[in-house]
């Protein structure tokens, strides 16, 4: 298994774990009561804004650990080159990811049309974000495994 394939798996697992642990922590702070109160919108705004730096820091830490373990296990330093094939794979993976996220946003809009509480829309957005990231990582793994 190549370094890029291993990195895709690490990315996939870390995305799931970060979102799961963060959501489990934040759900305890969800405001009880009226599902249409301004507190609910405040909660979801803070939820997404805090998730971004938390995810960045967590990923940096996970990457450092992964690079160290990979170097120890394989006894070889990985090339820092990003060549044309890497860029094309990245583009294809991002395109697949974007399609999934757009579908998620549309489903979120449908939840509003169906008079569901706004929290449902935000949960759909969160799921769409996670699933689109998973699709991106799975796409990368697939393309690297196949060759392109």
């Amino acid at each position: 298994m190549s370094f890029q394939e291993r990195r895709s798996i690490v990315d996939l697992v870390s995305s799931i774990l970060i979102t799961a642990f963060y959501s489990a922590y934040m759900v305890q702070r969800f405001p009880a009561g009226d599902p249409y109160s301004p507190d609910v919108f405040h909660f979801w705004g803070a939820f997404f804004l805090i998730l971004i730096p938390v995810a960045i820091v967590a990923k940096i830490v996970i990457y450092i650990i992964f690079y160290l373990l990979n170097t120890v296990a394989t006894r070889e330093e990985e090339s820092s080159i990003t060549d044309e094939r890497d860029k094309l794979i990245e583009q294809k993976a991002q395109m697949n990811s974007m399609y999934v996220f757009v579908i998620g946003v549309l489903v979120g809009m449908v939840s509003l049309v169906l008079n569901m509480p706004p929290s449902v829309m935000f949960i759909i957005f969160l799921c769409a974000g996670l699933v689109s990231e998973m699709v991106s990582n799975i796409s990368k793994f697939y393309f690297y495994r196949r060759g392109f």
């Binding site: 044309e84 094939r85 690297y144 060759g147 392109f148």
Partner: peptide, 26 residues
């Protein structure tokens, strides 16, 4: 070869196995 042409070894493997068609420049 990868070092000389500025790509990763994985890309050379993919080209050799006809899994990836390189750009004209490469």
């Amino acid at each position: 070869l990868a070092d000389q042409v500025g790509v990763t070894r994985q890309t050379i493997i993919a080209i050799e196995n006809a899994k990836y068609s390189p750009s004209l420049e490469l």
